[in-house]
């Protein structure tokens, strides 16, 4: 119960911190918009290539700009002394991990929601039914959990390295490929108005579970000896 309260507290303060200048969400969002723009020059989105390219486009945009949000989880102005304060507070590392995952997840989801909306407007994507949209939302949420759960651990790892922003992406993106492949596949189905297959959900779900469990343990390992982290 106490852990739940500190969990909620940490998320609340992360939001307050973000609300000061919205810099994480805004930079993710702007970057996503720019990516969508650049895509239109790289490939003709209205051509016959169809939904497959669109599903890939949207997930690539999520991946590239979501990485910014994950990067900001432990980096930025004064982030290190804030982290020190949290580590000294009576909050367990596991709670801290889940709080960080949740707040980063929320930031990324806000970005994804707006990006998806803009994407649908710009590229004339229409969902056939509410169920199709629902399936799309399910797959986006599941995919983002996987993305963020491993991302937060890696972000805690690369936070003190000079040039760690790039390293984070180098480490994160290859790990993301399974969830990316499954999510693109599922998004294709959702955009075409088909039911999701078991395989897609199983793979993304398994990825989420494995990385939430592993991330929780390994996050503790990373921060248990602060000086060495």
């Amino acid at each position: 119960m106490k852990a739940l309260r500190s969990y909620a507290r940490l998320i609340y303060w992360d939001w307050v911190r973000e609300a000061k200048r919205l810099d994480t969400i805004l930079s993710m969002l702007l970057f996503a918009m720019i990516t969508l723009m650049i895509f239109s020059f790289a490939i003709d989105p209205m051509s016959e290539t169809g939904v497959r390219v669109r599903a890939g486009m949207i997930w690539l945009t999520f991946l590239l700009s979501g990485a910014i949000g994950i990067d900001r989880a432990f980096r930025g102005d004064g982030a290190e002394s804030v982290l020190q304060g949290i580590l000294l507070a009576p909050v367990s590392r596991v709670t801290l991990y889940y709080a960080k995952v949740t707040s980063t997840f929320l930031f990324v989801v806000v970005m994804e929601a707006i990006t998806l909306f803009v994407f649908c407007l710009l590229y004339d994507v229409e969902f056939e039914s509410a169920a199709a949209l629902g399936r799309m939302i399910v797959i986006i949420l599941l995919g983002t959990i996987g993305f963020v759960s491993v991302g937060v651990t890696l972000s805690a790892m690369t936070r003190t390295i000079k040039g760690g922003e790039v390293l984070l992406r180098i480490l994160l993106f290859p790990l993301m490929i399974p969830v990316f492949a499954a999510a693109v596949d599922a998004t294709k189905f959702a955009l075409a108005g088909d039911e999701l297959t078991m395989k897609q959900l199983v793979l993304v779900g398994a990825f989420d579970l494995v990385y939430l469990a592993a991330g929780q343990i390994l996050f503790e390992v990373i921060l248990s000896d602060y000086d060495a982290s």
């Binding site: 596949d185 395989k199 897609q200 793979l203 398994a206």
Partner: peptide
């Protein structure tokens, strides 16, 4: 930590790519 994560990822990558 990363060595463990990278190894965990191998089977997932294998199935993901086979399936998709």
């Amino acid at each position: 930590v990363f060595g463990i994560i990278a190894f965990l990822n191998l089977p997932i990558v294998h199935y993901a790519i086979q399936w998709f």
